[in-house]
Design a protein around this nucleic acid. Sequence first.
DNA 1: CATGAATGAGGATTCATTCAT
DNA 2: TATGAATGAATCCTCATTCAT
Lengths: 195, 195, 195, 195
Amino acid sequence: MAKLQKSIDKRNALVKATIELVNNNGFHATPMSKIAKMANVSPATIYLYFENKQDLVNQTYIEVKSKYTDYAFATYNDKVSVEIGFEVIWKRIADFKLKECENAMFLAQCDNTPIIDELSRQEGTKHLQPLLDLWRRGKKEGIIKPMSDYILYAYAINPLSFLIISQKRGEFTLDKTHIEEAYQSAWNSIKVCSR
Amino acid sequence: MAKLQKSIDKRNALVKATIELVNNNGFHATPMSKIAKMANVSPATIYLYFENKQDLVNQTYIEVKSKYTDYAFATYNDKVSVEIGFEVIWKRIADFKLKECENAMFLAQCDNTPIIDELSRQEGTKHLQPLLDLWRRGKKEGIIKPMSDYILYAYAINPLSFLIISQKRGEFTLDKTHIEEAYQSAWNSIKVCSR
Amino acid sequence: MAKLQKSIDKRNALVKATIELVNNNGFHATPMSKIAKMANVSPATIYLYFENKQDLVNQTYIEVKSKYTDYAFATYNDKVSVEIGFEVIWKRIADFKLKECENAMFLAQCDNTPIIDELSRQEGTKHLQPLLDLWRRGKKEGIIKPMSDYILYAYAINPLSFLIISQKRGEFTLDKTHIEEAYQSAWNSIKVCSR
Amino acid sequence: MAKLQKSIDKRNALVKATIELVNNNGFHATPMSKIAKMANVSPATIYLYFENKQDLVNQTYIEVKSKYTDYAFATYNDKVSVEIGFEVIWKRIADFKLKECENAMFLAQCDNTPIIDELSRQEGTKHLQPLLDLWRRGKKEGIIKPMSDYILYAYAINPLSFLIISQKRGEFTLDKTHIEEAYQSAWNSIKVCSR
DNA sequence: CATGAATGAGGATTCATTCAT
DNA sequence: TATGAATGAATCCTCATTCAT
């Protein structure tokens, strides 16, 4: 309760402010001073928690990516069938992107932009392993097309980012039905077409 | 043949420099002075062709988007069947993204980022109409799933952006086989599953 | 006359302001903004002429050191006897330090402080060669004590810096008589004592 | 034996750290935080021992200057002849500058720079009295030239600072022989030339 | 007495933009 | 038209100093 340590609350507030401001204004147009103001700290305080602006964004990215993968796999266990497993993970991811819209937007922006250090990006990608394992199993069992993981991700997972961004822009609203449609599209794009 | 007062070459050089620099460094980290240097003009000269930095990026976006849609529909005619029509357009888009990698990357970055004015974004989207028309027809004919155009785009077209970016990062290389696989995934994700 | 080039006047004003402010306030306590103000330019303008603060000080040092050595050797020719040669040079140096008091002070501060890059310091020292040559001749002829040039400089030349600083502090005033006394001390400290 | 409330050890550590850091990096480039770190205390602790940064440097200066003069006159008694007296003091000073190189460097930097308050500088100079007294006696006896004490100091004592700095820079190494040569130069520069 | 956290004020530097030529 | 020089307004970041514990 006492304030003897660097407060994790302040760190969290900074990360949150970074996400919100970068989402709304872009990395350019997000000065440290604004981040500080939104987090209710002095600009100088940021540097107690982060080395510099780059570090702040890198760490924010890693943290959000980690939250994302944690959420994605929280209810998954690898004993279930490939199809069920995929559906479980996919729906969790969709859920995350809907409920944690700000986080999802932030990841989308970072992943399509050279604002994150190569190293941090790799760090963020590590935790996707369970999905890749599932796909490996699916390929072996002849259920999932024997394609590169990049193509699988591009079609099965990434489209959600596009939809989230479109929704944030107000062009479109994602509802339950859309999610179900999207899931079918995702699954159809990667499953082996039975004959 | 007559020499225009403002040299189109200089304008083009500026647009090209903008694309290259924004691709490699991000919008932040792309100062006007660097753009000028890369285009071999004085910083002041930029302002003869563009109102300000925002205008430069907006116009660059519109121009590239226009080049993209022109290329996409160049060989398409709406008399062909929906499936053929989709394949023609899809393959042209894939072709563009592969051959005009820099342009494609630039669009991907702009589309996932708040660096383009809302107005310019809409302007850029207009020319996608033939594809939307094709999808309308496809839905009417029961060939394409009756889903929002946003979902169709998310699954049929957008995944290519992810793949191009991954390729640019050197994580992955797109070859002919991948393109064919991707096409199948795209089509499977939007076509009505016959039984 | 036209203002097409980077104006040498502005550069000179910046160098002059740097000298004056560093003399009066020290390198710490001399912000770029003050230098700019004193030179009647915008802070940003400094960076058209110098890479950064360090470069500004380095170049200022080299320039002043160069003025110093140029002045020192302007009336010297190496055909005269060692004693006469030394007197000519010494008196010119004394003259410089008296007349160009600000410059002399600046050198003294730089030479006793780690504010100048090693490289620039070496660059500044190069032009002292004629004096070192004279001493070499003097040693060969048995007129000057066979000591390290550092010791010779410490006793023959460097004391003037101390006197200039004391004068600037108002503790002491250097007049013609003092200069003559100082010269005698300088010469006595390095000449071979006849018996 | 009684434990003082404020630990003299901490104070000493702070003074020592100040000297070392100012010597190596200059007064600019010596933040309080670095001083604290090198002294193994918290930045806040500095303010228990010193009013502010200026006070820390002032006190450090006075302390070092005092150590210097104490050492200089420790073996001197004013009953000996002027020449012997001078030699005794000079050699002690040389000894100090060689053995307490860091301290000597610090003084040199302070004495050529506006980083010390006028008042503290005067305070530091006070204790030089025995040397000035010796010189007064020497002048009266016709052994030392009837020159200003500033000139005497400039030629007899100050050159050692130049040599120490040169040595610290690695340009030159002071050994026993050099010291003896320097002493002769010092003495020759201030003694009345007998004929 | 001692401290780690916190900060306001300020410093170096950059940059979009303008101006004189 | 074209430009190099110039700049005010930010921006990132540092630092001497204070405060709550």
